[in-house]
Design a protein around this nucleic acid. Structure first.
Lengths: 207, 207
DNA sequence: CCTGAATCCGAATATTGATTCGGATTCAGC
DNA sequence: GCTGAATCCGAATCAATATTCGGATTCAGG
């Protein structure tokens, strides 16, 4: 991993894990600049020196955390999509599952999304982990949805599907970041409206 | 204005304006923390001391900039909505105007949205100018749209209309902040898809 | 012009936090 | 055990900036 010095002993592997864990916990309610290396190290029961023994700098540390979190999320989506019950589900049910999954991810990783968005540069970095996540997620969904829509006589391009997802993701990111309402990340009817949007946008019967 | 010392002489009024102007220009490509008071003052041809003579601190300065920008945007929306041609327009045309207006605002104030979103706190401040802007804009749109939808036999609550707008705003904020694609802030077909979303969501014929 | 108040100047202060580095400690292999 | 390498420690370094403040300058009213 870029900016992470490979470990030769088990000790440093443990150090690495402890620091990552402390960093992820810190990111639950802090941004990149708000988290101080000293605090991270102390929380992990280590020293500043140990930190710099593992990571080239703070930036590399943040990137490593993002990479790990993103991989976990992608993996969980793959599992969810390969669920047999989901493949047999109706189109509306499938979209409901997509919405539900997305909401779950954003709720669980609220701080992570917050910190990542805050850290984005101007113009946005084309290879940030969050970007990759969004791209891969809507790609996986598109792969499932395209044949469904084709079968329904309403063929859609991959791009159109990604755009439908883009509206949903935008709303969720904005909910985390600015919480403008009326829908909030913890609203009971959030899923209902996300599904309504997806169904309307893709022209699927909204049951 | 909160944190802004009222001016007794024309001199300080000019200083105020010069600083605000320099700040707005700086915000085109910098965030709140990236802009240094010293640079702002220099760009305005003034000194750090002059800055602190007008503003209690950096925070108040940022707030003043936001207030001014938000007021301008609200004013321009009011003008647009009171346009006679718009009142006579079809429902789809009305939604197209709303989408077009929003896109224009985000394009023109891209840096401003970027900086404001970056500055939001966790949890988001309930009284930030951007929040107020979003709320007021969707309120004004709802006021126009509700009677239209009622006339069409598809009555919608104000909340539903705000939610439809929330999808659009979310996409735009996310486009500024993370630019995830496929739709980008400068895409030619951005308006087309925003309109499609609004029409689908509100059940208006999409011509 | 005079004068007190308003305003401006910019060097000095203060804080914060990332990063470095020399020395101590622990490991793995012999 | 012994030894060189890996790792860890944490005080010192370095840089960036918001903010303060004492003194200089400019205004507005008489």
């Amino acid at each position: 991993m870029r900016g992470v010095t490979p470990h030769q002993q088990a000790r440093s592997e443990a150090t690495f894990q402890a620091l990552i864990a402390a960093g992820r916990k810190a990111l639950e309610d802090k941004t990149f600049d708000q988290m101080a290396i000293g605090d991270i190290a102390r929380a992990a029961g280590l020293s500043v020196g140990a930190f710099y023994g593992r990571f080239e700098n703070k930036e590399a540390f943040f990137l490593a955390i993002q990479d790990i979190a993103v991989s976990e999320i992608e993996e969980s989506l793959r599992r969810r999509l390969s669920d047999a019950a989901l493949r047999a589900a109706s189109d509306a049910e499938f979209l409901a599952a997509v919405a539900g999954f997305s909401i779950g991810v954003f709720r669980k990783h609220r701080g992570f999304y917050f910190a990542s968005s805050k850290h984005s540069s101007m113009p946005p970095d084309r290879w940030s982990p969050v970007r990759r996540l969004g791209f891969n997620v809507s790609g996986l969904v598109a792969a499932e949805l395209m044949p469904r829509l084709a079968r329904l006589g309403r063929p859609a391009t991959e791009r159109e599907i990604r755009i439908g997802m883009q509206f949903m993701n935008g709303l969720l990111v904005n909910a985390v970041l600015n919480d403008p309402g009326p829908l909030r990340l913890d609203s009971r009817d959030l899923e209902r409206y996300l599904v309504r949007h997806l169904c309307c946008f893709f022209g699927i019967d909204h049951e």
